[in-house]
């Protein structure tokens, strides 16, 4: 029971910080039917950062 709860918190923390974003991307790629090449972990990380920095994402 405790083990399950801890695992749940761990998953939540990973998702909150974006630690598991690459795994989600890979899973998404398996379902999506596109011919684009799969990004490496590093390329994907940099790509996501670039995307995030375009708009207002920090406030006073």
């Amino acid at each position: 029971m405790l083990h399950k709860r801890l695992l749940y918190i761990w998953r939540f923390l990973r998702q909150l910080t974006g630690d598991d974003a690459y795994e989600h991307y890979l899973a998404h790629r398996q379902c999506a039917h596109t011919s684009e090449p799969v990004l490496t972990r590093q390329k994907f990380y940099l790509y996501r950062l670039e995307l995030k920095s375009r708009g207002v994402n920090r406030c006073c």
């Binding site: 923390l13 990973r14 910080t17 974006g18 630690d19 974003a21 690459y22 490496t40 972990r41 590093q42 994907f44 990380y45 940099l46």
Partner: peptide, 14 residues
């Protein structure tokens, strides 16, 4: 660390 050594491992880096 996050972009070259262990890319995207945000929890470790933090």
């Amino acid at each position: 660390y996050l972009s070259n050594i262990r890319p995207g491992r945000i929890l470790e880096g933090s």
